[in-house]
Design a protein around this nucleic acid. Structure first.
Length: 136
DNA sequence: GCCAACGTTGGC
DNA sequence: GCCAACGTTGGC
């Protein structure tokens, strides 16, 4: 089991939208590093939902329902998508500031590589986030 | 609204 | 293959 974090602008697609829709095809990733991480995702892996922009916080937990396949919005057959389903909404949102203030979390891609939109987390980071989010 | 940190494109 | 110009993301 591996742990991941995906970014989304809530005005475009939020965790609430995922709960409403029950499933999302994670399309539109056009960055090689992010794509390679999408390809490593296995069914059942946990995926944190991060709202970028004004919120800048982890707000929910999802999991991989379907492993990677060719992104249907891509005409070059080069990019991939996965399907995600909702698991649980966070009671406490875990902010970017909290990531920065934590010795465990400030080494994460979220802090160190701010433009990456799909990234792995290690188990220690993941469990701290769940614990702090009060859904552990 | 600005800009740093990228990534991409295209001329040479 | 290099690099200038441009575009995008996302934090501040």
């Amino acid at each position: 089991m591996r742990y991941w974090l995906v970014k989304t602008e809530p005005e475009e697609f939020s965790y609430e939208d995922l709960e409403r829709d029950k499933m999302v095809e994670w399309t539109g990733v056009r960055n090689y590093q992010a794509r390679n991480f999408l390809k490593e995702m296995k069914r059942g892996d946990k995926v944190l939902f991060y709202h970028s922009g004004k919120e800048r916080a982890v707000v929910g937990l999802s999991k991989v329902e379907k492993e990677f396949y060719i992104d249907p919005t891509d005409t070059t057959d080069k990019w991939v998508s996965v399907d995600l389903i909702p698991v649980q909404k966070f009671v406490n949102h875990i902010t970017l500031d909290y990531f920065k203030s934590s010795d465990v979390l400030n080494t994460s891609y979220l802090v160190r590589q701010s433009r990456l939109s799909v990234m792995p987390l290690d188990e220690k980071q993941f469990s701290l986030i769940l614990e702090s989010g009060n859904i552990g």
